[in-house]
Design a protein around this nucleic acid. Sequence first.
DNA 1: ATTTGGTTTAACCAGATGGTCAAAAGTACA
DNA 2: TGTACTTTTGACCATCTGGTTAAACCAAAT
Lengths: 208, 208
Amino acid sequence: MVSELIMTVTDRNTEEIILEAACTIFFQKGFAGARMQEIADSAGINKALLHYYYRSKDQLFEAVFNRALISFLPTIKIALEAEMPLTQKIAKFVENYVDVLIANPHIPAFVIHELNTDPNRVVLKLKSHGVDPRIILRQVDEAIAAGEIRAINGEHFLINLLSLCIFPFVARPVAQGILQKSNEEYTLFLQQRKSEILEFVMQSIKAS
Amino acid sequence: MVSELIMTVTDRNTEEIILEAACTIFFQKGFAGARMQEIADSAGINKALLHYYYRSKDQLFEAVFNRALISFLPTIKIALEAEMPLTQKIAKFVENYVDVLIANPHIPAFVIHELNTDPNRVVLKLKSHGVDPRIILRQVDEAIAAGEIRAINGEHFLINLLSLCIFPFVARPVAQGILQKSNEEYTLFLQQRKSEILEFVMQSIKAS
DNA sequence: ATTTGGTTTAACCAGATGGTCAAAAGTACA
DNA sequence: TGTACTTTTGACCATCTGGTTAAACCAAAT
């Protein structure tokens, strides 16, 4: 019993070290650009050990992709599907989501690229973790009917909200270049966006 | 003289065929995921011919990347740097830019991924073609001073505008999945965004 | 017809890459 | 200590991949 516990702990450690190294490399270079050897080096272990824990590059990648989704979808899911007054919900979503993005800035570009490269690979997974837009779409329509906001298209509104939150992270090099900001300045800029996005959106949808 | 002309034409044709095939493959799979053999097959030629016209994968990629930038930056540049009343300028920009995106839907994700993977590779090129944000930033401040729009932060506004236009293209698989739309439905959705974005933005910045 | 020039191809090469294997190292337990 | 077990490693392999080369091809000019 003791031995099992200890071994399991050791397992988890090495497995976890590998997975973290794999995340770093895969997030930055994508599936095709990542090298097993580089991941092994980054984890400080032998390449054969990668295959001992994760049998192939594909399976290691899948573990990484899962972790990427798990870091993101729950937050967006809870925020969008919760029953809560719309304006309050929007505020909470923007704040939570941008915080998650600041903590994991490389994940969106990674997921987007892999999904564009091979939409079939994990489309099922996306659906299983899937975000259900119906609740917030209904809330938008109700808020319009109640005269709380002006008449807007819920689907476009939802995509607008996501665009405003996520795009500055995926396009960071371009945006930072256009605005000619240093890393520190751009990081601050991203922090400010929480309030900027909220104000921008609220001004746009308020009943006139 | 005649022979030169004919040869040049032939050159251009093969070169162009290769470049177009390379664009298709590189745009979809990125630099690391693209295979020279696949590009050759797609162009219907021998692999050695790729190296005859473009000496290496790197140089072929650079030609592709150049073409990608040339498809995009002029439009955004002209639109943003033109001297034109702000609201009119915004309208023109959204319309023109979304049209360019519809015509070249894969380019933004491609550029973003390559820039994230290796920011150094072409950062110089981005700067040489660089968009100068100062003109539109000044226009925003002037419009605020003139009471035409409410007080907003120009930099955030510029990023908001770009986010709303570009993100639905780079994140198409995700967005299409969330909204549960078919390809045709999503294409229509993208068309509608021209007016939707414009209204969303205008409502947000109008003087209250 | 022969030569001359660019164009296209098949065959080939060296190095990289994902993956395997048998042996070594470490660990708990008798 | 010796045994049974998992973990870790160095060496190795088959294949893939970017790139080269020499020869074939072809159109135009002499």
